[in-house]
Computed example of a mutant assay.
Amino acid sequence: MRISARTDYAVRAMAELACTSGRPLKAEDIAGRQDIPLRFLFSVLSELRRARLVRSERGPDGGYALTRPPTEVTVADVIRAMDGPLMSVRDLKLTGLAYPGAASALPDVWRAVRTSLRQVLEGTTLADLAAGTLPPLVQERVRDYNDDGRTYPS
């Protein structure tokens, strides 16, 4: 799986919005806090608005806000809004995918990868990101990955 800059910026912007308790946040503030180019952020926010993950409010106290509580929006929701399905193999459905001969087990590898992605991305909410407390599954996988011994509080 490849995370594009656009998707990375979208998740980071959504994490910032999750910290605002529903109050609108100006794009300029999001861009500054997350070091995102403002023009690029406007494009990202527009897509998130079309996906009904954020709403925009006009006026001096306006800006952008989440349309649902951060506990109800997952990282997977944001990725799907920006890039479509979490994982695909040549745009084929994984159900019923079969290869001949030596590659016959490969579709099961693709299915396992997709399941792992879904477990992590659908199990991590914007509230988790905003609080800095990642779900146990993510913490476990980070420990497997990190060699600096860093852990996240539960």
Rank of each mutant, 00 (worst) to 15 (best):
D35Y: 11
V113K: 02
V120P: 01
L129V: 08
T133F: 04
L48G: 11
G22W: 09
V89H: 01
S21Y: 14
V54F: 04
A127I: 01
R118H: 11
G123A: 05
P85G: 05
E72D: 14
R33M: 12
P24D: 06
V109S: 06
R114K: 14
Q119D: 04
Y99H: 11
A18R: 09
A98W: 00
T95C: 02
E57G: 12
N146G: 03
V54S: 03
L48F: 07
R80H: 03
S116N: 09
A27M: 02
Q119E: 08
M14T: 13
E140K: 12
A98R: 15
G132R: 09
A31V: 11
Q119W: 02
P85E: 08
P37V: 04
V138N: 01
T20V: 12
G63N: 03
P60M: 12
R143K: 08
R50A: 12
Y145I: 07
E72G: 13
R111F: 01
V73Y: 00
L117E: 06
M14G: 11
T115I: 04
I30N: 02
R33F: 11
R68H: 09
P60L: 15
S4H: 02
A65D: 07
D61Y: 06
R49P: 02
V44D: 00
L48I: 15
L66Y: 05
R23Q: 14
R23D: 13
P60N: 10
E16Q: 13
R12Q: 15
T71K: 09
T67L: 14
A27F: 02
Y152S: 03
P37E: 03
I30S: 04
Y64F: 15
I36S: 04
A13E: 11
G62C: 10
R80Q: 14
D35F: 12
V54P: 05
R33S: 15
G96H: 08
L17F: 10
D8E: 15
D61F: 11
E47P: 00
D144P: 00
E16L: 08
A127Y: 04
P100R: 15
P100C: 10
V78A: 08
L106Q: 13
V11R: 02
G84Q: 00
Y152D: 02
D35P: 02
P69R: 14
M14D: 10
P24E: 07
R49M: 11
F40T: 15
L86F: 05
V73C: 05
V75W: 08
T74S: 14
S116R: 14
P100E: 15
Y64A: 07
Y9C: 01
G149E: 06
I79H: 01
C19L: 15
P60H: 10
Y99R: 12
G132W: 07
R114A: 11
T7R: 01
A103R: 09
D147F: 08
A102E: 15
